[in-house]
Design a protein around this nucleic acid. Structure first.
Lengths: 336, 336
DNA sequence: CTGTTAGCGCTTTCAA
DNA sequence: TTGAAAGCGCTAACAG
């Protein structure tokens, strides 16, 4: 068997309690004793058993991350940020990826998996139902959402309305009036609220400028490149007029649209302006104008709040709106 | 406090042992008793304590994932595959992302973090030093590598040599003779062996065809789009002849190169053929010819092996070479 | 089929 | 400053 705290204690001629104190750097241990214990622990290659310590303390030093995907831009980067905050503080990251938005599998998580395994939870861009939220909150562990608002739960996120407004106003400022919208709300029921916020802000901004929102220039996707490619059929191949600019709810969709436009012989920005949201890794290389946000930082900040809360700072977890930035590149220009 | 197994036992007028058996579906419990226990557990909202059960059994039902990044294509998809295999079997996924290849932080993991927290480990595309490998193997938990070979450790991966050969032969078959290589071996010491395998296979295939490998057409990157853009300076702006085709060690770099080529007014494939490896989500939309592999599946299969091993099938973890596929799209054509 | 009883390895009062 | 001892909640013999 592995060497336990008792082995160390025996070898050092002290009690297990003393070893425990010494190893954890608690006070009330003489320097000499501490040194001896440390030396022996090291010599024996002692590694504490997390299970035992968890059982004794009730704390796991583990934070759960609940996300619909682990392999998409926003999620991967958020996870990386969360992980780095946790790593800095010696916490573990337990990942629960749903492998999609499917609702069926979720219930199991809220109860069996999340509970008693983690000290805190960060939820990435996932629309929680009231029931799910209830379940999670009843476990009374601190929670924080990243990437979008969750009613009744603190969130770290960008201001989607302001970001969308900035994007659309950029197009309008360039002189565009025929503006389409590739939104992300393909499945209202299961999907997140973010697409809706962006959609509404798009409409509001257009209205404010006295511009019409044309249904035939309004398509939905699921935030991926492929959805962008697909949307081109509606946006670019229609029988009537083409939009001169399209505001996309994500860079991935924007890039898909750009690829599709190229394939159709359309030049960007001469024939079509495209703007996205995110500042995806491919945005700068592709010259995509976008509203930049930083999910890595969002995850990092959210996790820091959680850790401070766990450390005893009541009220450390709060709503936090992080800045966005319009990055003008070569995919937008005045209409011809 | 939370309700414990004893509460359930007391309420059901049976022993804790019986509750434990009933709840875990073990034999030697009468149907009636089992039903009663289940009902009461449910009524009381009983959730077993993983810490306690881990301490008692020594098993954690958790698998660790060690990766240099969580936010890159290969890694995100691998993680998703690993996660889905784990989820199917009620296992947890503990993520250790190194946030880069930096070696400094690693040691801590091998010992303190990995040990005693997990039943098995999957390592994604990470070059382990002999010492690290030793440490990990001394913990005697089953391990498997995904995405590349690790000496002394079973691995699930594509055949990099065959894949590279297929890619380069595709270019040669089209009639190219001036072929460049954008490889991934920028930091030999810290980086993975995969770039080297691809590099050597590139050289060997060229040699076999009697074609020269020109140093000025051989650049290194770190697998990202930005590296592809950067490499264009060497590959496309040189004073001498330009290559007519470039084999890239990853699709991301290939795509970066394509963006850079477009910006320079070069047409693809007329002026330059580009081929990559991966079948990144952006490859099809961009029309990139590539050697397709499926990291999600690799992660899934690797994890299945691990779980079978944990379930008692000795020797379940073995080397596994997964197939690749040449997908010819519009980024490659005969040279002009 | 069911109950008793030791632990699993660590933390944490409470005494000394 | 140190030690003794009682748990934390569950599992796994071993009896019955």
């Amino acid at each position: 068997m592995a060497v336990s705290i008792d082995d160390v204690a025996a070898r050092a001629n002290v009690s297990t309690a003393t070893v425990s104190r010494a190893l954890r750097g608690l006070p009330r241990v003489s320097p000499a004793t501490r040194a001896k214990v440390l030396a022996i622990a090291d010599e024996l290659g002692y590694v504490p058993s997390p299970s035992a310590s968890r059982l004794a303390t009730g704390r796991t030093r583990t934070v759960g991350v609940l996300a619909p995907f682990a392999d998409r831009w926003f999620f991967g980067h958020s996870i990386e940020g969360i992980d780095s905050a946790l790593r800095e503080n010696g916490f573990n990251l337990l990942l629960f990826s749903l492998g999609g938005y499917e609702r069926g599998r979720r219930h199991a998580y809220a109860e069996r998996m999340v509970r008693r395994q983690i000290d805190a939870l960060v939820v990435i861009s996932l629309p929680l139902t009231g029931e799910e939220l209830d379940q999670l909150q009843r476990t009374d562990i601190p929670m924080v959402a990243v990437g979008g608002p969750v009613p009744g739960c603190a969130a770290v996120r960008m201001d989607d309305v302001a970001g969308t407004t900035a994007a659309v106003e950029h197009l309008i400022g360039l002189g565009h009036t025929r503006i389409g919208h590739l939104h992300g709300a393909i499945r209202d029921d299961l999907n997140f609220v973010v697409p809706g916020l962006r959609y509404d802000a798009f409409e509001a901004t257009m209205a404010r400028a006295g511009l019409p929102v044309r249904p035939e220039w309004t398509v939905g996707g699921d935030f991926t490149v492929d959805d962008g490619v697909r949307a081109a059929v509606t946006l670019l191949d229609g029988p009537g007029e083409r939009p001169t600019a399209v505001f996309c709810a994500s860079d991935e969709m924007a890039l898909g649209l750009m690829f599709a436009a190229h394939r159709r012989g359309l030049r960007i920005p001469e024939d079509l302006s495209v703007i996205g949201i995110d500042d995806h890794d491919f945005a700068a290389p592709a010259g995509l104008t976008t509203i930049a946000q930083d999910p890595r930082r969002q995850g990092y900040l959210a996790t820091r709040m959680l850790l401070r809360e766990l450390a005893g700072t009541a009220g450390a977890v709060q709503d936090l709106v992080v800045p966005f930035e319009l990055k003008v590149r070569s995919s937008t220009a005045p209409p011809n």
